[in-house]
């Protein structure tokens, strides 16, 4: 799986209240949640997100509450994947479970807003096409890749069940 897109860059400790403020938790519709994506960080951000963007973040992305709405909001806003120096555990799980790629890259540095970036999950490499720099990502365990490839925990479980039968 390879993803390519322009970057949107945020800092460290972006929490789930910043990704989707609690006032919008009265719906589970990704499109509606997507309209408020990252609004808690900066009210102007939702208007700036381009479909197909790759979100580049610092440490501990997605810390805070367990709301899956955070992943839905990112998906709904059209963000293709998140590349971060590290992720908070629950957010990381939720993203995998919803088939949304989250790529941990502790050595991430110097990728600026608007750069064209490609993320190659198979090769384990993130390439900043704008600067020609390459970064190695932390490899995901096999069965996590399996869930991601299946499109999330639910389709994965159904596939598994189908195989058992």
């Amino acid at each position: 799986m390879t993803y390519e897109g322009r970057t949107l860059v945020v800092g460290d400790d972006v929490d789930t209240d910043a990704i989707i403020p609690a006032q919008y938790l009265v719906t589970t519709d990704p499109t509606e949640l997507g309209r408020h994506c990252l609004q808690g960080l900066d009210p102007a951000l939702p208007g700036k997100i381009q479909t197909g963007a790759i979100l580049v973040a610092g440490r501990n992305f997605g810390c805070g509450s367990s709301r899956e709405h955070a992943v839905l909001a990112l998906k709904g806003a059209g963000i293709r994947c998140v590349v971060a120096r590290s992720f908070a555990r629950i957010f990381f799980r939720n993203a995998i479970n919803l088939g949304f790629p989250v790529i941990e890259c502790p050595g991430l540095e110097g990728i600026e807003e608007g750069h064209l970036v490609s993320v190659d999950l198979g090769a384990g490499v993130i390439r900043d096409i704008s600067t020609q720099r390459e970064y190695r990502m932390a490899r995901l365990p096999h069965f996590i890749l399996e869930i991601l490839t299946a499109g999330g925990l639910v389709p994965w479980a159904k596939e598994k069940e189908a195989r058992w039968r």
Binding site: G64, S65, S66, R67, E68, I90, N94, N97, L98, L153
Partner: peptide
Amino acid sequence: GDSHTCTYGALGAFATGMGSTD
């Protein structure tokens, strides 16, 4: 389905928060 599920660790349970799909 709540990040503060870890509260029950006070009783000696392994309790942990997860997302809704989990």
